[in-house]
Nucleic acid binder design. Structure first.
Lengths: 107, 107
DNA sequence: CTCACATATTCGGATCTGTGAATATGTGAC
DNA sequence: GTCACATATTCACAGATCCGAATATGTGAG
């Protein structure tokens, strides 16, 4: 893997990083990982207002991480690339180890 | 891996995600991955003003991803957890595939 | 102690992002 | 067409973040 240019990093930031860079969006990604859902279902299972969910989904769709498919009156959102969950899980591991390291130092 | 709570995601966002969520910070992470360096060296090799580098390093240090160790007059910054580079690389892969998918659709 | 190098911090301003509330658009049932 | 459900969008505002420029702090050489 070659070193990324600043232009590539800018694009990465404008898409994938921005998508992952919000707690609620990550919550939505995990919810879609468990099961594809429509907006109302996401709104209810995460207890987030519907307009907020729609806005977050627009960001996720723009990043290419999810797709939208109309099904009758509702729109089903699907996670396109499951690797993003692996990314999130690894970040959680890193954070967990970092916190552990800090508490070790305090002792 | 269990589902993250919104509290855990908030903490994750305030640390790891925030650290990765800036193009220049990611550039610094890659630079430190290649070799541990002091502030001036980073500033010069990435062509970023020194105060800006210092500020970004403070964020990265706060996230627990890098450590600072004084060595004489300079301070050497080191990447603590190399897994973050894997995370960044995977995100680049995801973006690349996403762009490819989009260009396929246009044809 | 003084000077020069190395790093960190403060300040003001511009920009971005998320949110709730309200509203608009789209879709199917009847 | 009309109504109800489903989703998307607009608006104003609050908060966060980034930056360049200037300045402050810290450290070692002499």
């Amino acid at each position: 893997m070659t070193l990324p240019t600043i232009e590539e990093l800018n694009l990465l930031h404008a898409t994938i990083c921005q998508a992952v860079g919000d707690p609620r969006r990550m919550q939505i990604l995990y919810a879609l990982h468990a099961q594809s859902r429509n907006v109302t279902a996401i709104s209810e299972c995460l207890d987030i207002p519907q307009p907020t969910v729609s806005r977050h989904l627009a960001v996720l769709k723009n990043s290419g991480l999810v797709t939208a498919e109309r099904d009758g009156r509702s729109v089903i959102y699907r996670l396109v690339d499951e690797r993003i969950i692996g990314v999130a899980d690894t970040m959680r591991d890193i954070l967990r180890d970092s916190l552990e390291r800090q508490s070790d130092i305090l002792e």
